[in-house]
Simulated assay, not measured.
Amino acid sequence: MSLIKRSDWPLLGNGSWLSNFFDNDRFFDSDLLKKQSLPAVNVKENEKSFDIEVAAPGLNKKDFSITAENGVLTISSEKEEEREEKEKDYTRKEFSYSAFSRSFALPENANEDDIKANYEDGILKLSIAKKVIGPVKTKRAIEVK
């Protein structure tokens, strides 16, 4: 009797999850681990402004960088955290790093000079005031003297 290596089993064949995990470190090159997570964004327009809400829990106000230049609004964040625990018999050191960047093309009537930002309860809220484009014709009464 001879042993035959079977590669047609669903969990053990080439390209399977288990095969990718155990063979040649292909698991760590998978698309699953390469995906960058971006926070969810809501954009609303009303008469006076454009309102943007970014879901970014666990961050502080100082973690954000917001710029507006040449009609592009960029919201980015970087956070690095490091913890170290020392006991008699061991030392444990953990660190984490997270970052994201989102850019938005601003419409012509967005006023880049009038943007307000507020971060509360894990939600970054931006309000971009609208500006009037072109001549506005308003009705006015003319008094006869």
Rank of each mutant, 00 (worst) to 15 (best):
I128C: 01
N70V: 03
S103Y: 06
K79N: 15
S37I: 15
G134W: 08
D89A: 10
N111C: 05
A117K: 04
V72I: 12
S2E: 15
G71N: 12
Y97Q: 06
K130G: 02
S101H: 04
N70L: 11
D25F: 10
I123F: 04
E94P: 03
L3T: 00
P39E: 13
S96N: 10
K88T: 04
E120A: 03
E45L: 11
K93S: 09
S19F: 09
S98C: 02
F64I: 03
F50A: 05
R6Q: 12
K34A: 14
S19R: 07
S76P: 15
E143K: 04
S96T: 01
V132H: 09
E47S: 06
I75T: 02
K34M: 04
S76Q: 10
M1F: 07
N14L: 11
S103K: 04
N111T: 02
G122Q: 06
F95P: 00
D29C: 09
K93M: 12
D25K: 00
S98D: 13
F100Q: 00
E120K: 03
I133Y: 05
A55C: 10
K116I: 07
A40K: 11
A40C: 01
E84G: 00
G134C: 11
L3R: 03
S96Q: 10
E84W: 15
A99F: 10
N24M: 11
D89Q: 14
T91P: 05
I66V: 14
E45G: 14
K5T: 08
A99M: 12
K62H: 10
K34Q: 15
F100T: 00
E84R: 15
Y119G: 00
G134T: 02
D113W: 03
K34P: 06
K44I: 03
P10W: 14
D31T: 04
N24V: 06
L32Q: 02
T138L: 14
S19K: 01
L18G: 00
F104I: 03
S7K: 02
E69F: 09
K5F: 08
R26Q: 10
V72S: 08
R140S: 02
V54W: 09
L18N: 05
L126F: 06
N46W: 02
D8K: 07
I115Y: 03
K145C: 02
F28C: 07
E94I: 11
S127L: 12
E69N: 12
S77Q: 08
A68F: 02
Q36I: 12
A40T: 07
E87V: 13
P57S: 11
S127Q: 13
E94W: 10
F28K: 00
G134E: 11
L73W: 03
N20K: 05
S101M: 08
R102P: 01
S19M: 13
P135T: 09
N42M: 14
P10E: 15
E87S: 08
